[in-house]
């Protein structure tokens, strides 16, 4: 190294490992978030089937609606890898289109969640009523908060894309936002399995549950 090396900070600098510092930060943050959601999920699992009064999960959870919203979130994950791919190839039209789609799908997911929460409230399930309510609402609403934050972030990036500030050279900015978005998605994958599919089966008699018809 010569004297007076120029160094930019928080940028893609030449560094000891050769990986982007921003990406490293994001991965480390995701590792930290694993513990955050891990604790909430562990709380949920530890309090599973311990509610003293209803409404119980099998009465309230609406699997068809949630399946659709799960599917929407999964596909938004596809959208963002495509947006990133096209951005890296500098095919800006497609990149903008997919980013917009991701944002729409994200807002759709939040819409489903709002609908679901109000539906539950109408059925008398609130965070105050029993343990299932407490654990369910804190976990899903904090996940929703993560999604909302992601949407704001992606909108900010989309505006940058339209203004020409986000292009193939600094695709890393979209890449780390994408990592965050995928992480929110995988958390939902776990939530869907544990909080919805498995929990909705708790306490269900062998005959099945009302909305399916059953035997």
């Amino acid at each position: 190294m010569s004297t007076n090396v120029t160094i930019q900070h928080g940028e893609e600098i030449n560094n000891s490992t050769g990986v982007s510092a921003k990406k490293l930060l994001m991965w480390t943050f995701l590792g930290s978030d694993v513990m955050f959601f891990g604790t909430f999920i562990a709380t949920f699992m530890a309090y599973r089937n311990k509610s003293l009064v209803g409404p119980y999960p099998e009465d309230t959870l609406n699997i068809p609606i949630t399946s659709v919203s799960t599917f929407v979130l999964l596909m938004s994950s596809l959208g963002i890898v495509l947006a990133l791919h096209y951005l890296k190839e500098a095919r800006m039209g497609l990149a903008k289109f997919w980013l917009l789609m991701v944002i729409i799908m994200g807002i759709g997911f939040i819409g489903f969640q709002i609908y679901e929460f109000s539906h539950f409230a109408n059925m008398g399930m609130t965070p105050q009523v029993n343990l299932f309510g407490s654990t369910f609402f804190t976990l899903t609403s904090l996940h929703g908060a993560h999604v909302s934050l992601g949407i704001l972030w992606l909108i900010f990036l989309l505006i940058n894309e339209y203004r020409g500030n986000l292009n193939s050279e600094n695709a890393i900015d979209l890449e780390i936002a994408g990592l965050y978005w995928h992480f929110v998605d995988i958390v939902w994958i776990v939530i869907f399995a544990l909080l919805y599919l498995i929990t909705a089966n708790d306490g269900v008699p062998p005959g099945g549950i009302p909305w399916i018809g059953g035997h």
Binding site: T28, T43, K50, P127, T135, T138
Partner: peptide, 30 residues
């Protein structure tokens, strides 16, 4: 980075119990 999120969750649960009346540590509700 790994331990403080757990405290954050504990804090959120206790805050929710105290402010919103959830039941995390309320033995009357199980």
């Amino acid at each position: 980075v790994l331990a403080l999120p757990i405290l954050a969750v504990a804090g959120i649960q206790l805050t929710a119990d105290r402010i919103y009346g959830t039941n995390f540590f309320n033995s009357e509700a199980g």
